[in-house]
Design a protein around this nucleic acid. Structure first.
Lengths: 221, 221
DNA sequence: TCGACTGAAAGTGTATACACTTTTTGTTTT
DNA sequence: AAAACAAAAAGTGTATACACTTTCAGTCGA
C-alpha cells in the first residue's frame, strides 16, 4: 500500500491548497483530478481521503470533496493547542539543550531569513512553520514532531499564507530571539517569547473568504 | 464519502485491536476481512487506511496490513506529548472552572468507579481514557479533544489493556484527586497530580510481545 | 541436509464497470 | 416571471477484473 502516485497527488493538492491556488470551498471532482493526474479515480480517492484526515479538505457523503474553510473558532482552538504544546516543549528543550542543537536552529533561522529576504512566499511559509517542527525533532521526539507538523499545516491554510512580508520578517526575528533565550538556557524568557510569538502569529490571522475557483486544472498546472 | 460500512469495519477492528483479540504483528488480509464483513475489498482498504492513520495498524507496500507493535521508545514519546499537552490543559482548566464542569467530571469518575468495581475491562479502559478527553471537551476545545482521543487510543494499544484491576483502581483514585484539586482551583496541585498520574500510567506499561494470532475470523466473531 | 531455484498460490495495487445519488437543465404550470 | 416538476447529465459509492508482487511449496543440486 501507499504507492508513490497517491503521495504525489496529495503533495500537489496540499501545495495548491496551502498556497491558495485552490480557494476554500472549491469542489474537487474526482474524475477531473484523475484526468489531470493521469490516473484512475481509485488513487484520487485515496489522496482525497488522506487530505481529509489532514483537515485540508472536507468530504461530504455523496456530494464530494471541498477545500476546507476552517472557522475562526477552529483556528483559535488549533492555536490554543499549539500554545499548550509548545510552551512545554520549549521548557523541556531548555533542559536538554546542547551547542549542536543551537547550531542547527541558528542555521534554520538563517535559511528563513534568506527566504524572507528573497520574497520566496511558499518557501518562507514552509520554513517558518518548520522551525517549530525542528525544535521537536531536535528534542528527539518524533511523535511530537509529526503532531506539530499536522497542526501547523492545518494553520497554514488559514494563516501563514496570508502573512505579509512584514509579518514574516517579524516571525523570523522572533525565532532568532527564541533561539537566543534557548542558548542562554533562560527557560522563563524562552517560554514567554514562544507564547508571545504564537499569539502574534494568531493575531495576524485574516479570515478572508475568497470565492471558490472552479478551474482546477488551471490551479494545479 | 465516508459511508457507515467503513466506519463499522474501523470500529470493529479498533475494538479487536485495543482489546487484544488481535495481537500486534497479526496480518490483516484484505480478502479475509472482506469475506468476514460481507463487503468488497474496496471498503476494507478504506478502513485499513484509516486505521493506519490512527497508528493502530502498519501498512507495508505490497505486503499488506499488520496490527501495529509500537516500540517502547514510541510509547514514551506519546506519553511525553500527553504530559506536555495535559499539563497546560489542566492549568487552563483551573482558570475557567465552573460548578457544572466539576459536576460533569464527578459524574464521569463515578461511572469509572462502577466499571472498575464490576471488572468491566473494556468499559473501564475506555472510561479511564475518556476522562482526559472529557476535560478537553469541557474546556470547549474540540481540536484538543480530538487530538487527545487520538493519542489515548494510540496508548491503549500498549498500555491500558495491560492494566491490572489494581492499576485501574489507582487511576480512578487519581482522577478523583485531580477533580478535587480542580474544584478547589488549586492550579499547582492539579498540575502536579496530573503529571504524576500520567507518569504512573506510563510506569505501568508492560511490553509483552505476544505471538500473532492468525485466525482473524475467530478474533472478530 | 541444506540452500538455491522454480512454478503455483495468495495477496496487493490500480483500473474499470455499474448502481445509485445529487445536480443541472429544460419544460410546464400557475 | 417564478415555482414546480421531469428527464438528463454529472458525480459518488461499491464491486469486480486483472496485472504485478510477494509468499510458499516442492524440486533439484551441491
Amino acid at each position: 500500500m501507499e504507492t508513490s502516485s497517491t503521495r504525489q497527488i496529495v503533495e500537489s493538492l496540499t501545495k495548491a491548497i496551502v498556497e491558495h491556488r485552490l480557494h476554500p470551498g472549491t469542489k474537487l471532482a474526482e474524475q477531473k483530478l484523475a484526468d489531470h493526474f493521469g490516473v484512475s479515480r481509485t488513487l484520487v480517492r485515496q489522496a482525497l481521503f488522506q487530505l481529509s484526515q489532514n483537515r485540508l479538505i472536507r468530504l461530504e457523503p455523496a456530494r464530494g470533496a471541498f477545500v476546507a474553510a476552517p472557522s475562526v473558532e477552529e483556528a483559535k482552538q488549533v492555536f490554543a493547542v499549539r500554545r499548550m504544546l509548545e510552551t512545554e516543549m520549549t521548557r523541556a528543550f531548555v533542559r536538554q539543550v546542547t551547542p549542536s542543537k543551537i547550531k542547527a536552529l541558528r542555521e534554520h533561522v538563517a535559511q528563513e531569513k534568506r527566504a524572507v529576504d528573497n520574497q520566496d512566499v511558499p518557501g518562507r511559509t514552509e520554513l517558518l512553520g518548520d522551525f517549530h517542527v525542528r525544535l521537536a525533532e531536535l528534542m528527539g521526539n518524533q511523535v511530537l514532531a509529526e503532531l506539530l507538523r499536522e497542526l501547523i499545516s492545518r494553520c497554514a491554510l488559514i494563516t501563514l499564507m496570508y502573512q505579509s512580508t512584514n509579518a514574516a520578517e517579524h516571525s523570523n526575528e522572533e525565532h532568532v530571539a527564541i533561539v537566543k533565550a534557548l542558548a542562554a538556557k533562560d527557560e522563563e524568557t524562552a517560554v514567554r517569547l514562544m507564547n508571545e510569538h504564537l499569539m502574534h502569529v494568531e493575531e495576524n490571522l485574516t479570515f478572508d473568504r475568497k470565492l471558490p475557483s472552479n478551474d482546477i486544472s488551471l490551479a494545479l498546472s
